[in-house]
Design a protein around this nucleic acid. Structure first.
Lengths: 148, 148
DNA sequence: AAACTAATTATAATGATTATAAAGAAGTAA
DNA sequence: TTACTTCTTTATAATCATTATAATTAGTTT
């Protein structure tokens, strides 16, 4: 069932009064089917063939629209540009310090941490963000070989 | 014991062969004593009085130097500029969705999450990043009043 | 002091993101 | 259909954080 996410997403959008333009359709589809965490520019380049006249602003605008509808999350890191992630189930990311590859992993939510934080700081907690950093198997292997 | 962190930090720097210039001293001191999580520009502005000729590049350069020595951590969020945090003990941050205030809280490390991530993904795990988001007491109070 | 290295300054460049204004497409009501 | 309104896209310029460069200054070593 590959198209389920896309169909659901389109319904969600339509219900909140957002028009489904060809560009929006394409951006969403790319986010879902690429199974990656692309930057705005990567999306722009990937759709260049089908939409030669599309503007970068359109990509940014629509990514924002999708975020407002809760379909997409923005992942921000230091230097580089933001990456965008289609939200399915709750999952976390592990990121390679060497090559930057991002891999999903699932883990029960950290409600206990949220509770403690709320208690200690007096905040009303809404959400949290967790990322794990390390070296991916590929890069680990490369380093092994170079050490020889 | 207010100056302990600063003295320790200076020793750490000297030991790794980093010169202690007046600018570096001032940036570090501000990071420690301001008890905030300033942006590079905030640091620049705060030191303008004492160092009228200091360049923004100097702030960025030295923040990088401090990061390389493990004294400072960069916190990155979506739109805005990076914030810089003097590293003392391990702690996490809770951030107000409304006003952006950042408050520290302590929590045992999430080694168990790291272990699971390593197991599932095959990564060698180095570190992780956790942030909690919510509404700070001040903003919550303001919202209460506005609702009246 | 001379020679060398590191740090700072001033300024320009980069690059991601956003703002703006004009043109186009879709939706609604007559 | 026509006119009218609203939303969307496009093209382009602007913004803003950060980095690169080159020249100058300061510190260190001989």
């Amino acid at each position: 069932m590959p198209g389920v996410f896309l169909k659901d997403a389109l319904v969600t959008l339509k219900e909140s009064g957002v028009r489904i333009t060809p560009q929006r359709h394409a951006i969403l589809e790319y986010l879902i089917t690429s199974h990656s965490h692309p930057t705005a520019d990567e999306i722009y380049k990937a759709l260049e063939e089908d939409f030669p006249n599309m503007s970068v602003a359109t990509v940014y605008n629509n990514l924002r629209v999708f975020q407002n509808s809760g379909l997409v999350k923005e992942l921000t890191y230091g230097d580089a540009s933001s990456r965008f992630d289609f939200v399915t189930h709750d999952h976390y990311h592990i990121i390679c310090d060497d090559c930057g590859k991002i891999v999903d992993f699932h883990h029960p939510g950290l409600e206990e941490v949220e509770r403690l934080a709320a208690h200690v700081t007096g905040f009303q907690v809404n959400s949290h963000r967790l990322e794990v950093y390390g070296t991916c198997p590929d890069c680990a292997a490369t380093q092994q070989n170079q050490a020889k």
